[in-house]
Design a protein around this nucleic acid. Structure first.
Lengths: 336, 336
DNA sequence: AGAAATAGCGCAATCGTTTGCGCAAACCTT
DNA sequence: AAGGTTTGCGCAAACGATTGCGCTATTTCT
């Protein structure tokens, strides 16, 4: 409970705060502090269990050993996993994480970003929700920033994202190979980049094969999946023989719908999904899906961020923005 | 990019930094600042888009408007949801969240807690992993701290937790009511308090009914569930007619095992589980379960924390530690 | 021996706020 | 008119670290 700072240690040991600071921040030899001083000071620091005040340290050095992480909804298992990966990787590099949740609100997003700056975070990793890059680019000019999972089409900011085009193409190709010819894709938020890319990939594969592809839906939600599936399959002769769900939430709604219509995946209709989710293996039948390389994406984002931070620290020219699209993998199960 | 702090504003407006600070931190009328000054200063602050430096503010006031949240694994949907709730509630009160993940390691836990202190967080919400309360109590003496989801049997710290005893009792009673008499419980980490309470509740219900109850297993993992279920049901005449899985991960392993043994929940063996997980409704049959009141628990934890913080702020006597056990609810589906 | 180099350490400013005092002018009292 | 209040604001010391510069002894060089 008694105060212990660099000053009290200075008093106890008889050395100046300067020397104490140098010893305790590991700069002893850089400043040629004697072994005697080092010993005395570290000993006293141990005794009173000294911990540097990180707030004061941040204020003085303008570095906080903290990264701001902004996600649009941590309760979403996808973002939770992403966050877990990022937090772990940052921790391994000695950085802490200030986590904010924008809840898909542009308002909250902008507040969180500004808050990060006021806190002098050393960098920001952001899954953006706004549709325009203006704010992010402005912030990025002052604080190293990389976009993760979502991004803007034309931007000077670096981003790391699943290659959603390739993923959707791959999934569709697989359905086609299995003989399905009339495919219904149920999409998520139409405006979001990952969704647009998935639509592109889907249509492009369908077109190439000369098959028939339709896109419906408007949200990454269970409800949306249910609604669209019921819509499409309640006619006696449904015009589709397969469903491509653009997220695991959409998939769930779809399954629910099919079940209520007495239809069974694989037997009556081919089903394929996007998104990782261990649970998909426990559905009956287990669901074939395109899994996103979350770990890889998180790791690349962190690496990219540190590259920018390093460059700025040495006031080198900014490295060219990286635009990374990581290929997802097809996990084949029994639903189509 | 140009600096903008209280000092530059002071220069532009001709008022002292004191006055500027008072105006911008909303203490204008407390110090009777003239309307003219208020107008001039806020106008200039707007113009240069001033944001207070939260680091400096924290250093000076010893408050950071930040709460440290420590969980043992954010990728676990249970903790992810809990975190989401807590972050949201804290946000509503104007607090930010420093999130750390102990990864079930005592070492990391203790480092994170100390880091929180160095950062002068205003409070800590912690899902502990260590078995002894010593460290937590020491930290709690200096920084308001409440335990969430896990806790220590005898402690002066406040905690909020599901009433696991009641939950397990309720689940078991339901199985018994449905006519099952030889129940196998597959438990998680034996040392953890929630697990112990579940065991107690289970045995107590079984005993009261004069039925037969067995507890096996040792981890909240899919593997553990699989292993124990296979073990118990591979004999031609299995000695159990129902399974109580102590978590949804365990449940999944169990399902997998039953499937591989050609057994079907409900038809061949009654199945009930602990834990929330929307997915459980999508299994076939949907799984009857005891759901934990996550939202309620998070909210109570936050409230308790703020009660302690308030008391300390006014240096009132500490409120008596709250030991809250929140009753879970039985969600009946078709697996038993 | 005198100059130069080196070793070992400290002074004091700085980061951007907040806040206990205190001071001068204007306004009321009686 | 003299004293008391209120109004409106500023000085300067914190908060706890870091760091450019400089100072004194001691050692090394020529």
């Amino acid at each position: 409970m008694e105060k212990n700072n660099i000053f009290t240690i200075s008093e106890k040991t008889g050395y100046s705060v300067t020397t104490v600071s140098r010893v305790l921040s590991g700069k002893a030899q850089k400043y040629r502090i004697s072994q005697a001083a080092i010993d005395r000071i570290t000993q006293e620091a141990d005794r009173c269990n000294y911990r540097p005040n990180l707030v004061a340290q941040s204020l003085r050095t303008q570095k906080s050993q903290t990264i701001g992480l902004l996600v649009p909804g941590i309760e979403n298992p996808f973002f939770a996993t992403l966050a877990a990966v990022v937090i772990e990787l940052l921790g391994a590099r000695g950085y802490h994480t200030l986590l904010a949740d924008s809840g898909e609100s542009e308002q909250e997003e902008s507040e969180a970003l500004r808050m990060f700056q006021s806190r002098s975070v050393d960098g920001i990793i952001c899954v953006p929700v706004s549709s325009s890059p203006a704010l992010h680019e402005e912030i990025g000019r002052q604080t190293p920033l990389v976009l993760l999972d979502r991004y803007f089409r034309e931007t000077t900011l670096s981003y790391v994202c699943t290659d959603n085009y390739a993923g959707a193409y791959m999934a569709t190709e697989y359905l086609l190979k299995k003989g399905y010819r009339r495919i219904l894709a149920i999409q998520g938020v139409p405006a979001s980049m990952p969704n647009q890319e998935r639509v592109r990939g889907f249509l492009s594969a369908v077109d190439k094969a000369g098959a028939s592809g339709t896109v419906v839906g408007d949200a990454f939600s269970v409800d949306n999946g249910f609604r669209e599936a019921v819509n499409a399959f309640s006619a006696p002769q449904p015009p589709y023989d397969a469903i491509f769900a653009f997220s695991s939430t959409i998939l769930l709604g779809t399954i629910q719908a099919l079940r209520s219509l007495q239809l069974r995946p694989a037997r009556d209709v081919g089903v394929i999904s996007f998104d990782n989710n261990g649970f998909l293996d426990f559905l009956d039948p287990a669901v074939t899906r395109v899994e996103q390389p979350l770990r890889e994406a998180g790791s690349q984002a962190v690496e990219t961020l540190f590259a920018i931070m390093d460059a700025r620290r040495q006031s080198l020219p900014e490295p060219a923005p990286r635009h990374l699209l990581i290929p997802p993998t097809l996990v084949v199960r029994d639903s189509c």
